[in-house]
């Protein structure tokens, strides 16, 4: 055993491509499965959410405009970076959840593979869910799915990494930008994933990650008028009604998901139909 003292990491938020502390100055304690101290991640506030939404809104235009090929490559790049740092993620999952090494490795592998799966959807979703509509008149008429704008999400508590990937990937692959609240009990995967994001080619503001308490942040997300969609997969079912009612103020599109499939991408896309005359 070495006598060397570890250099411990301060876990911060990830907003607009940088790692700020919460403006509230609040933190909470994350303990290991065995009860020992691991970290004091930020307890994000309403204002942190606001800042993240501003960053996400500003990033939307550019990310939405990026080609599908480009977005696919960037998601694939995330997978590459995650693969390269898999040991760190395995260790963190084990430390926080007490999972076996095999189980933790399985989750990281599935997370990498899931990113690759969604990356491949970037340039296929439009052709599969779009349409050329044979209208009764001299018009060219087509329907294409487009990103919705800024989407908020509550990541599930467990699995803390795979659950996060399942929230992030389908939302951003279509061109949305995202503010996601990480697993409260196990935020380490999310904050380390922010480092993966920061070192890949994802433009600043496309993915913003908060840590904190669902019951505090989810209602602010629901009522925020500049959030277009809300993935509440990670929120307890008994809270859904209140969140949906609050989200009605700007008719937010609110969904919770049971599986990973293309419907999850389409849920946060809007179909746009275009008409143009056909003539000389």
């Amino acid at each position: 055993m070495s006598n060397r003292i570890d250099v411990k990491k301060t876990y911060k938020l990830f907003i607009n491509g940088v790692f700020p502390r919460t403006e509230s100055g609040r933190t909470y304690e994350v303990k290991s499965a065995k009860g020992s101290f691991i970290a004091n991640p930020c307890l994000a506030s309403r204002k942190d959410l606001k800042d993240a939404v501003v960053a996400a809104r500003a990033a939307h235009h550019g990310w939405n405009k990026a080609t599908a090929y480009n977005k696919g490559q960037i998601l694939y790049r995330l997978a590459e970076m995650l693969e390269g740092r898999r040991a760190q993620f395995v260790d963190e999952i084990i430390a926080v959840t007490g999972a076996t090494k095999a189980k933790a490795e399985k989750e990281v592998s599935e997370s990498v593979d899931r990113l690759v799966w969604y990356a491949g959807w970037s340039d296929k979703i439009s052709s599969l869910s779009g349409a050329l509509n044979p209208v009764a008149g001299p018009y060219y008429n087509f329907t294409i799915p487009e990103s919705m704008g800024v989407v908020a999400a509550i990541a599930p508590e467990t699995p803390s990494l795979l659950g996060l990937i399942d929230v992030i990937a389908p939302i951003i692959v279509s061109g949305n930008t995202l503010v996601v609240l990480a697993s409260s009990k196990a935020p380490l995967s999310a904050m380390s994933f922010a480092e993966v994001i920061a070192t890949s080619d994802v433009p600043a503001g496309v993915i913003n990650i908060l840590t904190g308490m669902k019951d505090e942040i989810a209602p602010w997300m629901a009522s925020h008028m500049d959030i277009d969609g809300f993935d509440i997969t990670g929120l307890a079912t008994k809270k859904h009604a209140e969140i949906r009612a609050s989200g009605a103020e700007n008719l937010k599109r609110i969904f919770a998901f049971k599986s990973h499939d293309p419907a999850r991408i389409l849920a946060f896309m809007e179909a746009k139909t275009v008409w143009h005359p056909i003539g000389l």
Binding site: N133, V135, G137, N141, T143, A271, T273, W275
Partner: peptide, 8 residues
């Protein structure tokens, strides 16, 4: 312009 085949 409207048409049953065209999403609205």
């Amino acid at each position: 312009k409207f048409d049953p085949t065209s999403p609205f």
